[in-house]
Design a protein around this nucleic acid. Structure first.
Length: 323
DNA sequence: AAGAGGCACAACCGCCCCGAT
DNA sequence: GATCGGGGCGGTTGTGCCTCT
């Protein structure tokens, strides 16, 4: 028996999300928390299927997401982890806080895969890419995996400990679903911060949208797209002068979400500034990461990078394992 | 200036897993 | 234990932008 689609094909809107839709979705999630996606289109009036709503949230609207501009370290981690784990993007994303599996997947498919293939073909001439990737000693794959597993086990253990502590300290104020907080902010604190963090993402989208808008889009026109806005704004948000348009939008969102300033909308700053006090969304963005977990991930990352430093020469042989 | 081709990325599709009943 | 449904995941597609000729 063929399973029916998650929603009716008719009356379901497809294609790029509009800022208006984003706002509706975020507002709803602010109020009800993520989860129960089936109910989202019904309760919000969005003409989107539940799955589309979930993806939009998890990949783009969720707070604390960093987009574009992969660093060298991240790139190396992706290469290592892909060699280790294969195309298990969700697993890889778990090691790269603030990155989504979709983002990593896209980055791999559009850039890294080609880069590595180039490397592979040019590798005959050895060291064509400096010392970054070259084949010399065969890697002790089993050892590598054992070390990874050990760290994963440690992380899991830390997580379960953290969670058990949470349960003892966290109480009824919790919304349904997967939401939980580590410390217990006041309702006002939580509420306003959640708005801020999500509004932040949307504001960045809108700013990017407004940049593109003069090309002929109107506010009621659905032809606009929101892509690239994060990357652009991450790069440009700091030290940016307030133009009239962005200022208007800021004001709009300030009034709409009660958010003080959107000008500090750098993801890194965001995560740094909030990491000790985890909000429901912060937590939801990486459900399995607690403070201890973060510590272990940092450790793991350090280990990966340290390891990459001494084993980069071997990475191609790992990569060849995949190709 | 215009068209072709490539690139980047958001979003969709279909399968699978897992918890609830 | 079987069935159902929601959600997660990976693969793929569609589309706008950019660069080259």
């Amino acid at each position: 028996m063929v399973r029916p689609p998650c929603c009716d094909k008719e009356g379901v809107k497809k294609g790029p999300w509009t800022p208006e839709e984003d706002i509706i979705l975020v507002s709803y999630i602010q109020e009800h928390g993520p989860g129960n996606w089936k109910a989202v289109p019904t309760n919000t009036g969005l003409l989107r299927c539940s799955k589309s709503c979930r993806l939009r949230w998890t990949n783009y609207l969720r707070p604390g997401i960093k987009r574009g501009n992969f660093t060298d370290q991240e790139e190396k981690m992706i290469i290592h982890l892909q060699a280790l784990l294969g195309n298990r993007w969700a697993a890889i994303a778990a090691y790269l806080p603030q990155r989504t599996d979709n983002d990593i997947k896209n980055y791999w498919n559009t850039y890294l895969k080609k880069k590595l293939k180039k490397l592979e073909t040019s590798n005959c001439s050895e060291s064509s890419l400096g010392n970054e990737f070259s084949v010399s000693q065969p890697i002790a794959r089993g050892q590598w995996e054992r070390r990874l597993q050990t760290n994963i086990d440690m992380a899991k253990k830390a997580l379960s400990e953290a969670l058990s502590q949470d349960k003892s300290t966290f109480n009824e104020g919790r919304a349904k679903g997967s939401i939980h907080v580590e410390s217990k902010p006041t309702a006002t604190q939580t509420q306003s911060f959640c708005y801020a963090s999500s509004a932040d993402n949307i504001a960045r989208l809108l700013k990017g949208w407004m940049k593109n808008k003069p090309k002929g889009s109107h506010s009621n026109n659905n032809s606009y797209v929101t892509q690239n806005s994060f990357a652009c704004d991450n790069a440009s948000s700091e030290g940016r002068a307030k133009g009239s348009i962005s200022f208007e939008i800021d004001e709009t969102f300030e009034s709409l979400f009660g958010y003080e300033s959107l000008e500090s909308s750098n993801s890194d700053q965001f995560s740094q500034s909030v990491s000790p006090e985890v909000t429901i969304f912060q937590d939801e963005s990486k459900p399995e990461i607690g403070d201890n977990e973060i510590m272990h991930f940092s450790m793991l990352e350090k280990w990966l990078l340290d390891d990459s430093a001494c084993q980069e020469k071997n990475s191609l042989s790992e990569i060849n394992y995949i190709f």
